[in-house]
Design a protein around this nucleic acid. Sequence first.
DNA 1: GATTTTAATTTAGTCAAGCTAAAATTTATT
DNA 2: AATAAATTTTAGCTTGACTAAATTAAAATC
Lengths: 190, 190
Amino acid sequence: MQDARPEPSNEEIGFAIRRRRKALGKTLVEVAEATELTVGFISQVERGISAPSLSSFMRIARVLNTSIEQLLNVSEPFEPLTKAEHRQSYSLGENGRWYEKLGPGFSGALFYPCIIHRPPGHVAEMMQHKGEVFCYLISGELEYHLGDKVFEMKPGDTIHHDTSEKHFSKVVSDEESVELWVSSHPMTSH
Amino acid sequence: MQDARPEPSNEEIGFAIRRRRKALGKTLVEVAEATELTVGFISQVERGISAPSLSSFMRIARVLNTSIEQLLNVSEPFEPLTKAEHRQSYSLGENGRWYEKLGPGFSGALFYPCIIHRPPGHVAEMMQHKGEVFCYLISGELEYHLGDKVFEMKPGDTIHHDTSEKHFSKVVSDEESVELWVSSHPMTSH
DNA sequence: GATTTTAATTTAGTCAAGCTAAAATTTATT
DNA sequence: AATAAATTTTAGCTTGACTAAATTAAAATC
């Protein structure tokens, strides 16, 4: 949080929650049931009349399949276009592995795109969780494990699957891999 | 946020706050004054005995010069196949314009990916509809109109926006454009 | 268009949690 | 050991987090 930017108001946060809920096509009743709160309260939260406790807020974010950061960064200016040379790069804390976030994403977004670079031989962790992912391999080669299937991926290949199935991939090329990902969840690592 | 991972407890959050405070060499008194809360309360928050309200929590994060995400210790999760030479091609009924569907898509999918090829000079129809779209420009150059803004897109550039805003694009390169699209709706043209 | 159903908002509350002030204890400094 | 600083504990207030139920608005159905 920066001094220059005050904390978002209850109203701003509430509107972000509503936008997100509608983007997912969920009703107040659905969110209320999933969060174990009441319809009336969610309605008031969305209109900034009430503020949820921290734990309720985290539950709301989870049920809306988004991050708290997304719900709180309401005043971040949205820019739809990301030039190739203006991508924001982040190290993944491991040697030779980094990712490029593609834009801040707008508040109701269902897509979380990013470009990930991995060094040769890198093996990602086995993952399994609710959601969906799409990957377009820009360069390098991957061995992609999905359930009990194994796929060889070369540049131009794509894969799109439900993430509730166990999956991981390994960079099998001698060069680093460059992977364009679009996920239904915020993500910083693969 | 993730099914696999419950929200952090008050204790976990509190310990994260204390670690951060000590890392900065601040006393409880300093943090209490800066946040306009009492020493006793900060102490209880740090030991998980009390939880701050959302607004107090944001103030604490700001005073500790950190982000809420950091204090919540949220980890991001990780994550499939269409071979480049196995893409299903479809003519768009117009000279030189065609698209490649990327995989059949699984039931329940939110993403509809495809690759679109357009000839030089092609101008897509103005579109406006509920949903979301992400585009990665593989080759060629586009002039992308979004609302009253115009963007120049070159290979590697990406754009991600809500489709309720009017949008269309024009191929401005001398070569055909190759565009990777991920949309929240099935699409055959852009 | 009328009616029914669904979704959202409003109202009127409860009660405990967010937070206080002050006392007590612990830790650090001299 | 004495003092100052830092932290914890205690006892309590009050208001906001949240409820249940009624009402209204919007969407769906006939």
